[in-house]
Write a protein that binds this DNA or RNA. Structure first.
Lengths: 176, 176
DNA sequence: TACTATGTTTAGTACATACTAAACATAGTA
DNA sequence: TACTATGTTTAGTATGTACTAAACATAGTA
């Protein structure tokens, strides 16, 4: 079965590629995930080359990135050197993984720089008129509070292991 | 007052630039917003050129993009041809605006393509074995449900006009 | 009308990055 | 050991895009 040779599914694959790109991931990652997602059986790297039209190199790096995010799983069959891959089908799990990944890295460092600015302002660093300083502290504190709330929210979501539709529904009811 | 000439605030501006970039917006947008955010008074385009080091052109386009997102507000003083800008300080408002913006555009079209694939599958389009078709429907339906839940969530948030820290806290409590 | 001050648009540039093609590495097999 | 099948890494390319510099547009003023 070659899922991707079917035009109907090509649309699907292209859609996921766009979504992937939209959220700052390579288009290829979306395409690979899409192909795996609509495949009833695990696919090898060569299968993916065939179905996506990407080269081995691209597949290799993208599929590893996907695995690191927890969106695909490598499967090793005994007596077969080939690696096979299958897609995560629980999106809530996947989202948690992505949130966890994003939590680190550049974003954290950037947010940290805001916190540091605030600390320095509070500890009297820099030359500001008193009024000026308290204005800056107020403003940046508000931003910091916002980041903290977001951080708290994502960390909480990431910690849950039972995030499913019922939970979402519960949140929605709370908000109404 | 030239906020940006102060090294302490340069850090802050660079931090927001990185955050902006991280979320798929131009670095310049983050820098401009940061400068406006720590300015006690509205700033003109020339002020922004001075404080960010960007050129008029870049400021012009980025500041308009920010205004479209509802992150900054243009202010016209009578008898003064200059446009002045000030930053939105309610981040929850801002987030709603951004969510609304993102809801449309490419992302929506991409998600729509998933829905269309599903509809076509359900209406018997394409040549699939019965088992194959029901497998695909099940898979893609699950994805569609997920998108719907997300959509519902963001739309609900966008509809609220009293989203603040208390609401976030309430959500967090629900999740725990 | 010409002149100045301001904001916008455009042509070109620089940079980041996802991808290709091909070299390389390695595990299994004879 | 050599050979094959598979996966990884690397050098180069192409593409998108944010920015610069400068031309352009326009409103107010003399």
């Amino acid at each position: 079965m070659k899922p991707i040779s079917v035009p109907l599914l090509q649309n699907f694959v292209e859609g996921l590629s766009s979504i992937s790109q939209f959220w700052g991931f390579p288009k290829g990652m979306g395409a690979i995930f899409a192909v795996l997602y609509v495949s009833p059986t695990p696919l090898s790297l060569d299968n993916l080359v065939e179905h996506t039209g990407l080269t081995k190199g691209a597949i290799s790096t993208n599929v590893r990135a996907l695995a690191r995010l927890g969106l695909v799983f490598p499967i090793s069959h005994l007596g077969d050197r080939k690696d096979y891959y299958t897609a995560e089908t629980d999106f809530y799990k996947a989202i948690r993984a992505i949130l966890g990944e994003r939590q680190n890295s550049e974003f954290d460092r950037a947010v940290a720089s805001v916190r540091i600015t605030l600390i320095k302002l509070k500890s009297g660093e820099g030359t500001f008129a008193q009024e000026e300083r308290s204005f800056l502290i107020e403003r940046i504190q508000a931003m910091q509070d916002f980041f903290d709330a977001l951080d708290h929210l994502t960390k909480t979501i990431a910690r849950l292991d039972t995030l499913g539709l019922p939970t979402i529904q519960k949140i929605l009811k709370t908000l109404k």
